[in-house]
Design a protein around this nucleic acid. Structure first.
Length: 83
DNA sequence: GTTGAGCGTT
């Protein structure tokens, strides 16, 4: 399972995201995608944690929380295979 | 500013 983090500040970096999510569990991996064509930051991220319970805890704790001047939107990510 | 890659045509 992975977490989707939307409405992310464009100043946020992978390390920033990991720092915050690490408070609620162990980070397995983090994605901070940029637009493949333009190289522009896309303003969202994906985080994978070591257990579903930790991810749920992080979602509940961080969804709607203000971070770096923006209110985060955090929820379970959709599978990327679909697109 | 809201759902990841890259390869490159099953």
């Amino acid at each position: 399972m992975s977490i989707y983090v939307g409405n992310l500040s464009y100043d946020a970096t992978k390390s920033d995201v990991e720092e915050v999510f690490a408070e609620y569990g162990t980070i397995k991996s983090t994605h901070l995608p940029t637009d493949r064509e333009t190289g522009r930051p896309r303003g969202f991220a994906f985080v994978e944690m070591s257990s579903d319970a930790e991810e749920t805890a992080a979602i509940e704790a961080l969804d709607g929380a203000e971070w770096m001047g923006r209110v985060l939107k955090v929820n379970k990510a959709k599978p990327r295979e679909r697109r």
